[in-house]
Design a protein around this nucleic acid. Sequence first.
DNA 1: TATACTTAGTCTGTATACAATAAACAACAC
DNA 2: GTGTTGTTTATTGTATACAGACTAAGTATA
Lengths: 224, 224
Amino acid sequence: MQIQYQDLSFEVYKRLKTMILSEEFKPGEKLKQEHIAKLLGVSRMPLHKAFQMLEDEMLVENLPRRGFYVTKIDHNLMLDVFECREVLEGLAVRRAVKVITKEDLDYLKSLFKPFCGKKKVDNKKYMEADQEFHNSLLLISGNEALKRFENVRNVLFRAYRGGLIREPVETLPEHLGIIDALENQDEKLVVQLTLEHSTKTQKVLVGKIEEETKSKFVFIGDEA
Amino acid sequence: MQIQYQDLSFEVYKRLKTMILSEEFKPGEKLKQEHIAKLLGVSRMPLHKAFQMLEDEMLVENLPRRGFYVTKIDHNLMLDVFECREVLEGLAVRRAVKVITKEDLDYLKSLFKPFCGKKKVDNKKYMEADQEFHNSLLLISGNEALKRFENVRNVLFRAYRGGLIREPVETLPEHLGIIDALENQDEKLVVQLTLEHSTKTQKVLVGKIEEETKSKFVFIGDEA
DNA sequence: TATACTTAGTCTGTATACAATAAACAACAC
DNA sequence: GTGTTGTTTATTGTATACAGACTAAGTATA
């Protein structure tokens, strides 16, 4: 593995990304260039480059001559992204099942080992493992184009900010089941399990959104 | 429709894009910033922004401290992209079949009208219609995330440069069949037809690649 | 003759400075 | 008092300048 030079803007990008994902910058907030440039001690040029990277990952939006704003997490967009993830992940596992190595499998297993057999799990840590698991599936597939769909992952990561969509006690067995099917190179099963896993989460999400929408209507009713 | 300001870099981006797609800049060619900046009469800053946009569409690659290069059309990448398009388009038509309007259908039909019943068709024009057809499917779906996968389209556009992968006489009925199924809101059929359409093209592409690889080996043999 | 090292030149990455535009606020007219 | 217009201020978009890194050519040495 050779050492790769990373320019300043990449550092800025990483920093801003964590700040957005941790909601130090709130959705809808304007990101003032000069202000942030001073904050991070860089000029506006590498900053601008970083903004663009974030734009491609759907973390910020650019309004010409107005500036960059943190994208609001829109529920409809979230569902749209989930749909895409579903089919892309389906593709990923179909390929992964053919090329997966013992090392890959060991890695996937290691992600969830800390949570197996535990009654109570650290939700934040589990969330990270969950993310990494789904990301790894894309990478293991070996499809170069798939690897580029990182923007999909970011929107979903932000979706998780309100907490996990489903409980670990429910999803952990599903994850392990997918790993098992990959190990046994059972293409049909792994595709089925991945699809089910995704569909279940989407259904719960739709339910939550409906709830939210309802309570919003009530609130508006109170105002009138 | 309100007037939107487009910054210089967007103009530069569009210009460079056509130059790359028309192979004024050859695959693998280095894009010297200062040189192109002078050529287009802009500074290196909007140029840099344009380069980044192109990078996200997989039209150029950036090597840190080396500069930007036009991406070589790699056959493996092309197949990877085709796989992604297949599943994304599957998703697109599943949604499209539910929300498609009469206007959408008329537009899709109008794309291929000039070629219907003709014995000989202008391949270049047909290629453009083909592109627009597949792009439209993504747009009609209404899935915001799907619309963002433009990079997929660009790689494939470049794949077409060597000519159409399959003949219009073969693909035209397939396209019309998909439109018909959309009109009849036959979800199952439209998904099946779209999948078949894509799979056939991929198969032909794989065959062409194998041919090419073979002839390359012969060439190398001659050299030795 | 081939290889390694030095040095000049070119190009990228970053910072600063300037111009153009949008937002905010105050003054004026209705 | 409200709405509109003009002016100021803040912020973005673009150009230029400089420093550091890479490339390549040329010379010296084995």
